[in-house]
């Protein structure tokens, strides 16, 4: 089996930092089956002036979610985007995520996401019974889908609430005010995963509506479109959570029934 002749490919990468920057072009040799991350690495090694091009990566197998960037304008994992998906002479343009502050070149400061996670009360089961906790596979199928999340934050990047309107949930929520921002799709499914857990005992629904801004999502589904783990973020995570909010805050019938039934059995997160 003969290998095809060495081909060249041009990488158009945004180079710069918080004070500004511009696109630079690097043309390097490529091999069969390469992904965009390989192209970045090839440029770092072989192209003049690209040796210090900042780019996060770890596993190079779509499992860690480090190499998130915008490739030809689309939020993607560089390690899972094959050069073969583009026309042979097409320039590959890479940019840092738009939604987060730029550190340098292709890296952004995603610490806001880690702050959101801290706001969400952790899993709190009842004390372990004699023997083991029991849950059926059918009880965990839903939440296992959300736990596939690799925290690449591509959904956060593409969510227009965060990306274009910059309504990122602030560190503190002023009392009595409507929610000041949104925690984003990644943490909607984090909350969904906890809320749908058969063993959990914390009620996060009031927080979700009042502080984490579930109402900001207008379900335009871009988060689901970009998810490299193919998690059905909108249909299986966000919308069910929105419906749970409706049960508690908008639907007079379910609100009445809940009141008659003594309200949520879970402890409300303060």
């Amino acid at each position: 089996m003969s290998e095809p002749a060495k081909r060249k490919r041009t990488l158009r990468a945004w180079r710069g930092d918080a004070s500004g920057g511009k696109f630079e072009e690097y043309t390097v040799e490529v091999d069969q089956g390469m992904v965009v991350l390989d192209l970045v690495h090839r440029a770092q090694r072989d192209a003049e002036g690209a040796g210090d091009m900042a780019c996060r990566w770890n596993c190079k197998a779509g499992k860690c979610g480090s190499c998130s960037m915008e490739i030809n304008g689309k939020p993607k994992l560089a390690c899972m985007t094959r050069l073969g998906d583009y026309a042979p002479d097409e320039v590959i343009q890479v940019q840092p995520l738009k939604t987060f502050p730029i550190i340098r070149d292709l890296t952004t400061d995603v610490s806001w996401n880690y702050e959101q996670n801290k706001k969400i009360a952790p899993f709190t089961p009842p004390p372990r019974p004699e023997g083991d906790y029991r849950m059926k596979q059918k009880d965990v199928d839903r939440i296992q889908e959300f736990r596939k999340c690799i925290e690449c934050f591509l959904c956060q990047d593409t969510c227009h609430v965060l990306r274009d309107h910059d309504k990122k949930a602030p560190a503190t929520q002023p009392a009595g005010k409507p929610p000041q921002g949104f925690i984003g799709p990644r943490f909607m499914i984090r909350v969904a995963q906890l809320d749908m857990h058969p063993l959990d005992t914390v009620d996060r629904i009031p927080k979700l509506k009042e502080e984490w801004g579930s109402g900001y999502c207008n379900i335009t589904k871009c988060c689901t479109e970009v998810c490299p783990e193919h998690i059905n973020i909108t249909d299986n995570g966000i919308i069910p959570m929105k419906e749970r909010v409706v049960d508690r805050f908008y639907d007079p019938i379910t609100m009445l029934l809940s009141k008659l039934g003594g309200g949520s059995k879970r402890t409300v997160q303060k």
Partner: peptide
């Protein structure tokens, strides 16, 4: 569209 600029406005989603 995804990663396409929206109509500039004070976005309030479905909260208002």
């Amino acid at each position: 569209g995804c990663a396409v600029g929206p109509v500039p406005h004070d976005y309030r989603g479905e909260t208002f």
